[in-house]
């Protein structure tokens, strides 16, 4: 039960990052790697602010804003300076590594005994800590997914989707591909940083290395969601990414607990995650070749 709860909590918290990655990779069709920098940026901003006495919710808001700035930066590199998308993201990621150290002042910032959004929720609702975590993560995860689903049904959201789906068409109907990419990446990285900020409050610390592999684990969540739930349309796709994130976190918990019997340790997790993503990426092509 504890394992199940942990999977749901973490799945929803890290699922916010999966929503962001779904937005950049699937909707905008832009392979944005800056998330490996904006996730810990969100954590660093949140932890720093809370340790200076900020309200945990205000800290989350500012974390999201910082992430959006990171997304704007990547978009600017790509659209203004014509830097290839992958490289633009990598540059942002590396720059943010230094910046995150600056923000925190040191590589690890513990938040022991500090207020957190979860503790406030627990206090407000009278729920025990674990359930407050599920509630908080659920409210934010599902809330953000619902907002995005609604956004995608508006003219603004449709413009974003069209621009990622077919830039030629989008341009022929009055949309600037650069402008769409810019606000799309801001939104995406805002979500990722929000995820990082919430993760810091959940874990009770921010660490300079906590962003490594964010892109891979988020993509794993997106892909697992697509395979398990076969979503039709972008709204279901978002919910599937959240669901995929829960399944992924569950699988990681199980692997951490029972993997040692097979000789795996925590150090192998990233390798295993990358292999899962690799398998999911290769499988369709492989199946096609077999059938064709």
């Amino acid at each position: 039960m504890a394992l199940f709860l942990a999977a749901v909590e973490q799945g929803l918290i890290w699922g916010l990052a999966a929503l962001g990655v779904y937005l950049s990779f699937r909707v905008l069709n832009f392979p944005d790697l800056s998330v490996d920098g904006t996730f810990p940026l969100g954590a660093a901003v949140t932890a720093t602010l809370i340790s200076r006495g900020w309200d945990p919710f205000g800290a989350l808001a500012l974390a999201a804003a910082a992430g959006m700035a990171g997304g704007l930066w990547t978009a600017a590199l790509s659209t203004r300076f014509r830097i290839q998308g992958l490289l633009a993201g990598v540059l942002t990621m590396i720059m943010l590594y230094s910046l995150n150290l600056r923000v925190m002042g040191r590589p690890n910032l513990p938040l022991l005994g500090r207020p957190s959004a979860f503790r406030t929720l627990s206090h407000l609702t009278g729920l025990p800590g674990d359930w407050a975590k599920v509630l908080g993560a659920g409210l934010l995860g599902l809330g953000c997914a619902a907002l995005l689903i609604a956004l995608f049904r508006t003219e603004l959201g449709l413009a974003l989707r069209a621009s990622g789906d077919n830039p030629t068409t989008a341009q022929a109907y009055g949309l600037s591909p650069a402008a769409q990419l810019t606000w799309g990446l801001a939104l995406s990285n805002g979500l990722v940083a929000l995820s990082g900020g919430l993760a810091a409050q959940y874990l009770g610390f921010a660490d300079i290395g906590m962003g490594i592999g964010t892109i891979v684990s988020s993509l794993a969540a997106v892909i697992i969601g697509e395979i398990l739930f076969r979503p039709r349309g972008v709204g279901w796709g978002l919910l599937a990414a959240l669901g995929g994130s829960v399944v992924y976190q569950g699988a990681i918990r199980v692997a951490l607990r029972y993997g040692s019997r097979l000789g795996f340790t925590a150090a192998d997790m990233r390798l295993l995650t990358a292999l899962v993503v690799l398998a999911a990426l290769v499988a369709p092509a492989w199946r096609l070749r077999k059938e064709g």
């Binding site: 508006t154 003219e155 603004l156 449709l158 413009a159 989707r161 069209a162 789906d165 077919n166 068409t169 989008a170 109907y173 009055g174 972008v234």
Partner: peptide
């Protein structure tokens, strides 16, 4: 746009000016 529906494609074309919510 291939992944947009017929209706969504038409909606994209129906509003060429600034998009709103």
């Amino acid at each position: 746009a291939p992944h947009l529906t017929v209706a969504e494609n038409l909606a994209l074309a129906a509003q060429k000016g600034p998009r709103t919510l």
